[in-house]
Structure formats: structure tokens, C-alpha cells
Design a protein around this nucleic acid. Sequence first.
DNA 1: GCTGGGAGAGGCTTA
DNA 2: TAAGCCTTTCCCAGC
Lengths: 257, 257
Amino acid sequence: MDFGRATGLIRDGLSKRHLVTVFGECSVDYVGRATSTLPFGKRLAMLKGDGSVSIHQNRLVRPTNYMVNTRLSIEEAGECAVLVAKKLSPREQLTITFRKILDVKSYPMEITDDLRLSGSERDLNDLLMEDLSMIEPGLKPVNQQEHFSKGIADIIAEDSAGNFVVIELKRRQADYASVTQLQRYMQQVEKLKGKKTRGILLAPGIRSNARKLLYELGLEFAKLDFELKPSSAQKAEIKGLERKQTTLLEHFGAAGK
Amino acid sequence: MDFGRATGLIRDGLSKRHLVTVFGECSVDYVGRATSTLPFGKRLAMLKGDGSVSIHQNRLVRPTNYMVNTRLSIEEAGECAVLVAKKLSPREQLTITFRKILDVKSYPMEITDDLRLSGSERDLNDLLMEDLSMIEPGLKPVNQQEHFSKGIADIIAEDSAGNFVVIELKRRQADYASVTQLQRYMQQVEKLKGKKTRGILLAPGIRSNARKLLYELGLEFAKLDFELKPSSAQKAEIKGLERKQTTLLEHFGAAGK
DNA sequence: GCTGGGAGAGGCTTA
DNA sequence: TAAGCCTTTCCCAGC
């Protein structure tokens, strides 16, 4: 495909805010948060109506190069056609140099987003708030997504003994970061309210090292067992909650140490 | 485009491990780590030679739906053509139901990975190891990327007073996770070696709350000023290092508190 | 397989 | 804009 025709098609597609794909032999240079060079090779460039650009190789979901929120331009330069994507703050530039353009497609599409996702942490959070007694009898909600200077606590509750309970919810296996996150909130709540405060990490699982750290810090873990309903039903469902090894003593006792 | 022709093209492209794009009106259902549905609409599906699938709308870099490492099949079913991507462990399924296929493209491409980046953390790490005195006079390397049960410490050094120094390097703004990560390593080294150990977080910047936490924990921060060379030069260059507020006292002193 | 952690993370929400 | 954080994070390296 000759460059004149190709660049014409691309410009037309961009002006209509279509999704434009360009297949060809190109090299790619990125300068911005890092710098990278890609030698000439066959790739598929995807230019979206909102200014997103991505360069795809025939492997992996993630593009080799990409940029959001760009201003796009294409020019013929000697033996090549050069597509430039620019952005300010932070200053970034992606330069795609085509020595051959093999195909250009311009797909008319709305610039919309209508995905309905179920089973996100937000869903689970809402479900839990409806009945905190799933976690522990007598647990009463105090607040949700409460902002502290050191972050945002998922759920704050009060247990039957009148202690505050900070609950950190994870939809997947909890790790070190989850534990330290909970600790930050727990300590801050304790300091702010001046009352004994517990911290419960609620997740489908926890990595063993993270669990050790958790217990060393005097925090608790509760296993969250939830089921993802098929897409027709809009919400996930919490099947049950299981409390395990609520204290450090029990933990190391059970481990036989 | 009639379904017979479309499915034929798709099957042919898949068998050749091309990068195949399918543009059409489709609905998408995902069941796996979450569940999601996408009502009928125009979208571009991208099927890669390694079994990666992604569904793109006309906005954002990230696809609305995706799956890696899938087995793909396409069948005509009544008024629709249904593309199914399956994967075991964890069990996931992506179902793309086309009621119209408007375009199919099959791009012959190698299944390779040829991106070369500069300015990665590893590069900076190597540069720093060449001359730790940039961080502090008299600092001598002990180890690099040392594995501990609690993670991997970027750099371990010894200062002129004979203390161990654990250095955590971040190529971008440091946050809470960076601070707690460093603390984990520092504590573990201290325990393992039984010697007073310092911890230095080395990054181009740090969020103010994270900095507060850092000083509360008795850790140090050093500003790393580095420059990313244009792609022709292969390596980044460290322009300089600036030590600021090395102690909690200085920090709060400077803050006027 | 699990674990730990980087990434040009992307992308969203709220202050 | 910055901070904080979730993500079907993706992806890789080590073990």
C-alpha cells in the first residue's frame, strides 16, 4: 500500500475518531517515563478515538508500547511514514516509523464503556456491609471507606466488647502489602479514637509469610469464601466466612512450634 | 460479511498463528476471576498467536476483556457466530457472541518479543553498584539483589562506621509500599546479621505521607536524580544524588514543628 | 506450582 | 493536580 493512500486513510480515520489499525513494518521509539527502541519489524498499531495508542506484537495481552491521551499526527518523510503521538505533563513521545504499510483499517465505533463487572472488591464490600455478623457475631458497622491521613479503611466496625475493628478486604490472596496496609489503618484508628482497636484482614487466602507477619503484628485473618454468580445475575454472593487462628498463640501452637 | 466466510478466515488465521482481528457487533461474557458481561455493541477482537485474546472498545489502552493462554474455537450457532476462549487452572472462559461480523483480518507475524528498554530499575541498580559513594562517602557494596525470606533487598552495603545499610531503589515516586518494603528488609538484615542496620530509600521522589512514615520508622530517604538517555545510548545516567532530612529530628525541625 | 515484586504499570475516585 | 488504591492487574524471575 503506497504511503499517500495509507496516510490519507489514517488521517481520515483519526479525524472521525474511529478506531484505526495500521499493520506494517515499523520501528518504535518511546521517550518519556523511560526510553525504549524497537527495531524494525511487523507490528499492528491501534489508534483509538480518545487518543490512546498501542503497538502490538503477536504475543501477550499487553502492548509493547503504548500511550494514553495523545495528540496524533502522521507525515511522510522520505522512504518512511512517521506516526507521532505526543503528550505533555508528563512529557512523552511515541514515534512509529513505518518503512512499509501493509494495511490500514478504520473502524467506526462509539467511544463508550459499558462493561458490567461483578465480583469486584466494591461489590464484596457492599455485600459485607449488609451483614457484618458474617465476620463475627455482634459486629456493627460504623463506617465504610473512611479516609484517614494514612489512607482509606475499607470497613470500620465495633465489636460486641465495644472495641473498634478495622477490616481490610481483598478479593484475592493477601500479601505483605495487604498486611501493612491494614496495620497502618489500625494504628491510626487506635490513635485517633483512643480506644483499643483490632484489625481483621478478610481475603480468600493469604500467603504464608504474610500471615506470619500479620500475627506478629497482632492482626487477625478471616477467610472469605465467595462465589461469582453467572453474568445474568448482577452480583456476586458471599458463601461464607471462616475464622482461623485468630491469635498468634494459636497460630504457632497449631504449627507445632 | 457472511458467517461462513468469516469463520473460515478466522480458523485459517488461528491455525497459522497469525494475529487475527475481528470487527463486529458482539456481546461478551467472561467467567473466571470475576464475571462480566458486555451488551451487544461494535468492538474489535484481537486474537494473538500465543493464545492471547483481547476485546477492544474505542477508548483506553487496556482492553475491556482479555485472557491469556487460551484455547480458541469458533462456531456458528443460529443467528450468531460464537468465539470461545477457554483456559484451565484457574478455570476461565471468555465467550464472544457476534451477531454481525463486519471485518476479519489475518496478519502474518512472528511470535517474538523484542522490546529493549533502558532506564529500568535494574539498570539504575547496576549503575549505583559501580559507585555507592554517590549515596554516601565510604559506602561499600556487600551484596546486590540478596534474597531473604521476606523478599529481595535491592542493595546491601556497609557504611564507614561498619553498619549495614539496606538500600531500596525505586525508579519512580516512592509510596507507602516502598517504605514498608524497606522496613521489612532492614529489620530482617538487622536480625540476621545481628548488627545495627540502616535503611535508605532511594527514589526520584516520595509522597509526603509516606515520607512521614519513613522517618517515624527511623529510615532515611535520598533523592535520586537520573536522566534517561535517548534511545541511541543504551544506558541511563545518574545525574546526582541529594540527601535530604536524614533524620527524624532534622525533618521535624525543618518543618517548623 | 507459589512467592515476591516491578511496570513507561493503567485507571478510577476523592480531596 | 496529587494521593491512595484496586485491578480478571500483566508479566517475569526464583525457587
